[in-house]
Simulated assay, not measured.
Amino acid sequence: PSAPVLLSSTFGRDWVTYGVAVRGNVAYLAKGKTVQIVDVSNPRKPATLGRYDEAFNALDIVVAGDHAYVADGPLGLLILDVSDPGNPRWAGSFDTEGFARNILLKENLAIIGDAQGGLLMLDVSVPGRPEPVGRFDTGGAAAGLTVVGNHLYVTAEEDGLIVIDISDPARPRRIGSCDTPGAARGVQVQGNLAYVADDHAGLQVVDVSSTAPLRFLPPFRSASGAVHLFLEGAAGQRATIQRTADFNAWETWRQVVLPQGPLEIIDPAETSARRFYRAVGH
């Protein structure tokens, strides 16, 4: 590992390669208007097996069974039948109504990250008829995706790292986040650590062992009448504190980033009479 050596490379008229998937001795390349399939059984002499030249802007690709799933930019999801690597054929598609930037698979669930902000989850159990299951608004662009169990880790550029529970794909829910100093572009998770490619800020290593939901500890009212609130959650998680006097109209009151340990928030006496509070994670 300390001395990697380049063995070979493959180029073509469409030399820009954005994404790659490898299964066995075959590599699948997302190359803009082309999906190229390459035999890499001899790593010193990769050989093209087949091409699909009708993609629009293939940016990312994953392969499962006899199908390749492609994030195809403004055209959304492209599904190819690659049972014959020498003759890849169109098998299905789905217009995501955004800009499909990346994709991953979790069993029969395709999760597509959108460059304009958000996730789309599709049931691809029948590849020719993908069906929408759920959506999630990430705020910033969904630049990178990785999944561990039922936790989806999303890098959302200026919005940092977001952790989403997808145990029910129809109702994905945010369970944690960490605002990184740069623009979070990509993520990989190993054990309790997330490794985030953070643009100009380099590599950020985030402890994701705690994805506990936000919760208030018991508050108290000081002699001055001010209410002292204590909010607990994962360090680095962002939250909006809302308050109400009647449980009908909730006012957005504070935007906070949680430190290690509980965060104290003080509502002064002149504004805290008959107030109720809740925290919403970002």
Rank of each mutant, 00 (worst) to 15 (best):
L105S: 09
N108S: 15
N108G: 08
I111C: 11
I112Y: 13
G113R: 00
A115E: 15
G118N: 12
L120Y: 03
V124A: 03
S125R: 12
V126L: 14
R129P: 00
R129T: 14
P130L: 12
P130N: 11
P130W: 13
P130A: 12
E131I: 15
V133Y: 06
V133T: 11
G134C: 11
G134R: 13
R135E: 12
R135H: 13
R135P: 01
F136L: 15
T138F: 07
G139K: 11
G139H: 10
G140I: 04
A142H: 09
G144M: 03
H151K: 06
V154D: 01
A156T: 10
E157N: 10
G160C: 10
G160E: 09
L161K: 11
L161Y: 13
L161N: 10
D165P: 01
A170S: 15
A170F: 02
R173G: 07
R173T: 12
R174P: 00
I175H: 00
G176A: 13
D179H: 04
T180G: 08
P181M: 02
A184M: 03
V187C: 05
Q190E: 11
G191Y: 06
G191T: 03
L193S: 13
A194L: 05
A194S: 02
A201V: 01
Q204W: 05
V205P: 10
V205D: 02
V206F: 08
V206C: 02
V206P: 02
D207T: 08
V208D: 00
S209V: 01
T211V: 07
T211A: 03
A212Q: 13
P213L: 07
P213A: 06
L214C: 04
F216D: 00
P218E: 07
P218K: 05
F220S: 08
S222T: 12
A223N: 13
A223S: 15
A223F: 12
S224R: 11
G225D: 11
A226W: 09
V227F: 02
L231V: 09
